[in-house]
Nucleic acid binder design. Structure first.
Lengths: 366, 366
DNA sequence: GTGAAAGCGCTAACAT
DNA sequence: ATGTTAGCGCTTTCAC
């Protein structure tokens, strides 16, 4: 049987109000003697406020809703992890619901969360409709994180794909490559649009002419990277490097190159995007641009709490930068390869073959 | 501004009590005419009960807590997905907390969840201490799912590792292998103990003598599979098949075999365990025993709700069977390989080289 | 078959 | 500086 505020008040010989004031650190004046007494009694009795009751009274539940596309999707766990880390520091908890791309489910989720009086909602990768449409369904504070289409709306946090693509291309250019092919994702994805832009911008910065025959399009899956690469390898002069817009396709690239009797990275350098878990232990391990999932999560949680506290009432679209993770497939490393333990960020001991270049990508800050 | 029960009652010209009875489908007698009226008005006003208020009154929040080791761990998302799927069908929601192997955090999480008056708790892969110790901290219904050590306690749901290992060995035996090596995980893990037992039992069922020199021990990581395999390859006669206790080590096995100038599966057949996402698109794709995560999740959620409704007051330890996923590394398939799209369970078109054997493993049902 | 009223545990406005 | 009291929205006895 849990001990209530009334129990504490009685045991301390004060009124509920006083006990409440003390235990909430209210700035309301309370004699330090009574304050101490209450604190002592509360401690002794092991008092823990009933958050349900408090929530009913204050209309604040310290709970937020997370509507995610599907927890099984690769970026969802790290994003939610970032969110949780921030929330737990602020005594907030979250309820997760999978929407499975279904607008009906999403609407129902919003209604359910409202019924539970969450203080706000974060939409993770959900994009069954425009954010304006979604916004109409909610009166509560909300944030969109890693929205996959039409992402540059207010209250949204997304990866800086343009910057990431520049990082990848820059790395290859630093290594001396001048014929750098690009395998992009489907054109309706924001990620594909922005990564292409980054590819082009960085090429331009190095004075490398843009060559359409070096650009292919896949569907994010391994097989598409494989197929497109077979095509690319027929180009003359042959590309010396291939940048794939995600790691899955980069793996397909590697397979196609190997099947053609060529080696990665010696004959063709490969760089991917995302930094998926497998990228560290396939052969060769994939050099890639890390998707800053945890950071996006943290940032969006931070923004949401700001919205909730009404410190601000709208968040400008926010781009989060990922960083380059250098492994084997680009050819920048020498030395014996250590398998990466899962989920560790231990840096490898290999030496970079080139001093990390400080060429292009300079003007571009965000 | 949300519409309350009182609003509905007033608009329908009845008392709060009557409205409540109707809207809760209480078996309390209400004239069907008034019932209809209330329902109609509620619909029209878009009434949605305030779950916080209801929770305060009924002491039931329809929320359960999920204390997970870390959402970034590979099995956690599918387990939570299974839990969510079951819960959402029963109008339950869940709050997730990462314990990060820290008993202090776990204790705090239990306290926090209690403060929020969750109806029950599921511990996912958390094993910072004995379940008896944990049980002492909670007065609420709780279930342990995929507990990694000392798992066979009451109220726990775990994979049937012994069965899974038998499946793997059986498959190799069916393919004609008689020198089957085994790379196990660290001996303090339940999974390692049970998989070894399964390996031995199935070997015995086929009349294959147990040979200690064919058993190695890794630490679940790729590199350990690699190193142990180098050792194993020096055995004479050489093993013709290697069963690794997880897919990560199986990958290390494949690399070591390839580095020795041998081929998988032609020279050495390999079977892993877990069915991790990468297993379908590394080369060769890994034949493995699927860890039944989603099913374990569903089952544990089902059990928890049963505990909550007091339909039962204790759950016997429950083993969940995984199934064999046949891919390339075992040599049972012929034909062109299709890369597996992520997260699809589409079956491949290859033909099995052998009719699926119905030899040993017959008596063993659970 | 229906309504009045109490009360879950808490906070906050209003006394004193 | 402290206490009294009302009430958040709901369910549930109890009375009619």
């Amino acid at each position: 049987m849990p001990v209530s505020l009334a129990d504490v008040a009685r045991a301390a010989g004060v009124s509920n109000a006083t006990a409440s004031r003390v235990l909430n650190n209210s700035d309301y004046p309370v004699a330090s003697k009574t304050r101490l007494k209450v604190l002592e009694v509360a401690e002794e009795l092991g008092y823990r406020p009933n958050l349900i009751a408090r929530g009913l009274r204050t209309e604040q539940t310290f709970t937020i809703g997370l509507i995610v596309e599907n927890v099984l999707s690769p970026f969802i766990p790290p994003i939610t992890r970032g969110i949780h880390d921030y929330l737990s520091q602020h005594d907030y908890f979250s309820i997760i619901i999978n929407s499975d791309w279904d607008p009906e489910v999403e609407s129902a989720a919003i209604a359910d969360l409202s019924q539970r009086h969450v203080d706000g909602i974060i939409f993770v990768e959900s994009y069954t409709r425009s954010s304006d449409e979604v916004a109409k369904l909610i009166e509560k504070p909300h944030i969109f994180v890693h929205r996959l289409f039409n992402s540059l709306n207010r209250n949204s946090v997304v990866p800086d794909d343009l910057y990431g693509a520049r990082l990848a291309v820059r790395h290859l250019a630093c290594l001396g490559h001048r014929r750098i092919a690009f395998i992009n994702g489907p054109e309706d994805w924001d990620a594909a649009v922005n990564r292409l832009a980054g590819y082009q911008e960085e090429l331009a910065a190095w004075g490398i002419p843009f060559d359409l025959t070096l650009v292919g399009r896949g569907d994010w899956q391994v097989q598409s990277g494989f197929v497109v690469t077979q095509q690319l390898l027929t180009c003359r002069p042959r590309p010396t490097a291939i940048f794939a817009a995600n790691d899955l396709m980069a793996l397909g690239v590697i397979y196609a190159v190997q099947d053609a009797g060529l080696r990665v990275p010696e004959d063709i350098a490969v760089v991917g995007f995302d930094d998926r878990d497998f990228s560290g232990f396939v052969r060769p391990a994939i050099t890639t641009v890390k998707m800053p999932c945890e950071e996006m999560g943290r940032i969006s949680a931070e923004f949401l709490l700001r919205l909730i506290s009404q410190e601000v009432d709208v968040i400008e679209p926010t781009l989060v930068k990922g960083e380059l993770v250098v492994r084997q497939s680009c050819g920048a490393l020498t030395g014996e390869w250590q398998f990466e333990p899962e989920q560790s960020s231990i840096l490898r001991q290999q030496r970079l073959l080139h001093d990390d270049c400080r060429e292009p990508l300079p003007d571009h800050e965000l």
